[in-house]
């Protein structure tokens, strides 16, 4: 038996909106630790890892580890029917073939339940080792989204370079080139407006903008995004999910031939 009650149901809505275009079907894993997902996009270039820790739920009951295969587009359709202020409860029976999403309005005057069919999905979990990164950039998520969107109108790939000068996002295309440099800026009124660059060594990597733009669909989840870079490793683009967890996107770099 599984019963997870999330008072801030809008978080789950936002999570689904941020992954549904990247991944079609995925297994949600439920354990004492929390509600999690690890899945790759269909071309195996990007990987998404989500964790919502059990402590973040108002009520968290998971009698035994459960893996629930879901079509993320269908799940997103159902969660779209929840109000932004609704409390969302996820319920499933052990060995059952459905999951129920219950939506309660804050005043308890409207209660809806949506039952969705589960699916069998063959998926293997990849081991993601703890890595030391050459550079970690923390910046406003809206700024990062704006940069990815702007650059994708010029080119298909972005070169992200971190040096002492700051972080540079560059692209080139048929019509020309573009370079956007963001410097460290911690003298801001609000901490969410800060740009912080921790660099061990300069690093420069090339990525497909199509994926980066897809990751920025998670922007509504968090004011800040963390971009962790190391040569010869996928970039990690991380958005915190309130106080309860994170959504991390891993993207394999392009290789100069």
């Amino acid at each position: 038996m599984l019963e997870l009650r999330l008072v801030q149901g809008s978080l789950l809505k936002k999570v689904l909106e941020s992954v549904k275009d990247l991944v079609n079907d995925a297994n949600f894993d439920c354990s004492a630790t929390g509600f999690s997902l690890q899945a790759m996009d269909s071309s195996h270039v990007a990987l998404v890892a989500l964790l919502l820790r059990s402590e973040g739920f108002e009520h968290y009951r998971c009698d035994r580890n459960l893996s629930m295969g879901m079509n993320l587009n269908n799940m997103a359709k159902m969660l779209k029917c929840a109000g932004n202020d609704d409390i969302v409860t996820i319920k499933a029976d052990d060995g059952g073939d459905t999951v129920t999403f219950m939506f309660e309005s804050p005043t308890q005057d409207k209660i809806a339940d949506f039952e969705m069919k589960l699916m069998d999905i063959d998926s293997e979990h990849l081991g993601i080792p703890e890595a030391e990164f050459q550079a970690i950039v923390r910046m406003p998520s809206a700024e990062f989204a704006r940069i990815c969107k702007d650059l994708s109108s010029i080119g298909d790939t972005v070169v992200i370079s971190v040096t002492k000068e700051g972080v540079k996002f560059s692209t080139r295309g048929d019509i020309g080139t573009a370079n956007i440099v963001c410097r460290q800026n911690t003298t801001v009124d609000k901490p969410e407006d800060a740009t912080v660059i921790e660099m061990q060594e300069p690093v420069s990597l090339t990525f497909a903008l199509r994926y980066m733009n897809s990751f920025t669909k998670a922007t509504p989840l968090s004011n800040q995004v963390t971009i962790s870079l190391s040569s010869e490793l996928p970039v990690v683009v991380e958005y915190k999910v309130a106080e309860m967890g994170y959504i991390r996107f891993y993207l394999a770099p392009k290789l100069e031939e």
């Binding site: 790759m40 071309s43 195996h44 270039v45 990007a46 990987l47 293997e124 979990h125 990849l126 081991g127 993601i128 080792p129 790939t157 090339t206 497909a208 010869e232 490793l233 996928p234 891993y250 394999a252 770099p253 392009k254 290789l255 100069e256 031939e257």
Partner: peptide, 14 residues
């Protein structure tokens, strides 16, 4: 010319 790498090049199955 650039070649897109895949995730499995970096992370092995558990």
């Amino acid at each position: 010319k650039q070649k897109q790498q895949v995730i499995s090049r970096f992370f092995a199955p558990k």
